[in-house]
Design a protein around this nucleic acid. Structure first.
Lengths: 207, 207
DNA sequence: GGCACAATGTTAACAATGTCAACATTAAAG
DNA sequence: CTTTAATGTTGACATTGTTAACATTGTGCC
């Protein structure tokens, strides 16, 4: 009988170890370099050194695989936001809380600009079907920053109710537009990352 | 010889008339009903009653066809914005200009909510390669509304510079999030369409 | 230890897709 | 009327996602 093990694979590496994770990280790497459109099941299996149908032991569908890559992409964004938070002042003052909000929101926007391919897959298929929530979770990190602003006293309870949606919409929208180069086309009129974040603060009556 | 004309098509309808437009509108209809993922070249040709390869006489590529459908989608958004503008007060006052901004921005958001499938293709592949600009153009309509606010005197020149990006980011971001049902998940804290538009006005020191 | 059994991977095949090359038909220009 | 460009058709090819049937590996149970 002509089997795979008699040809190339040693008995020890017939099983891959952790294929599920390998596929996701390979998918992440591919999307980052070549975009979402060209992300294929077979090609991904080839890169990972595995048979195309092996993928179906870990993902029901290509769509589910994409959802997993999307989740991973959101999680790298979450890590970037946490990093930005660490590089920000830690003072428990209004000024400190504002600085942390700027850092977190800025990281979100930077992600959209510098990793536009990842940003694309991160926010398509938002609702991963029965896939445990991201950790760290970008939108919750943003919300936590607003909660802190509220607790420290520079965000009224009234504004706090709508703050998450407003902040998220603005940051998310600017990141998305920037990812497509749509923010620098109108000659005179354009706003930078800082302008956008300051606009959020102003709309929330902060400072 | 066995030709198509001897079988089914009369000589008069061998040529389609305006296939280019027919493909685009068929594509629009399909995306609206069944989403962007399942938009295929062959299926589209079948629906239009034409051979698959006939598409290549009008579009270099499936990607170019999608770009055309995306443009058409943006144009239907533009029409909805114009309709909303007509149903708004026409007074050349501050109050009127604000009402018109709310109408235009609201139409943009409604498009994201009610036509989420179209919204998806409308803002993927933003830069149609050498495809003449949309008419009516959604982002320009939004900008025009801001210009009017500026000319009428309730938007300072300083804020006017950044206003297009800020307004567009907020509206576009909220529409995108709403299209994915991501705006109603956090229990207490959520904002409605009106809240978002009012936040834009406040961040621009209007009224 | 030996053995059922789940987990994981492989091969072979199928239908459908995007795309190309070569050919046919119609419309327009000389 | 003939030539030529526009538009559409057929046939084929490589690639893709997916399924069914089979092989291999690791695990718990007696």
């Amino acid at each position: 009988m002509l089997t795979m093990s008699t040809l190339k694979k040693s008995h020890a590496e017939f099983h891959h170890g952790d294929l599920q994770a390998a596929l996701v990280t390979a998918g992440l790497r591919h999307v980052e370099k070549h975009g979402l459109n060209s992300l294929g099941l077979r090609q991904l299996a080839l890169v990972t050194g595995v048979s195309p149908t092996a993928v179906y032991r870990h993902f029901a569908d290509l769509e589910h695989l994409k959802a997993a890559v999307g989740k991973a992409s959101r999680e790298t964004l979450g890590k970037m936001m946490l990093d930005a938070l660490k590089s920000a002042p830690a003072n428990k003052t209004a000024k400190g809380a504002i600085a942390r909000f700027l850092a977190i929101g800025g990281a979100y926007i930077d992600f959209g600009i510098k990793k536009s391919n990842l940003s694309e897959i991160a926010f398509i298929c938002f609702d991963s079907p029965e896939l445990e929530p991201d950790s760290p979770n970008p939108s919750e990190l943003l919300m936590a920053s607003l909660t802190e602003l509220n607790e420290i006293g520079c965000l009224s309870d009234r504004n706090y109710k709508t703050a998450p949606t407003i902040a998220w919409s603005m940051v998310h929208g600017f990141a998305g537009l920037a990812a497509q180069g749509a923010t620098g086309n109108s000659g005179e009129t354009l706003a930078s990352k800082r302008d956008v974040l300051m606009a959020v603060l102003k709309s929330l009556d902060i400072k």
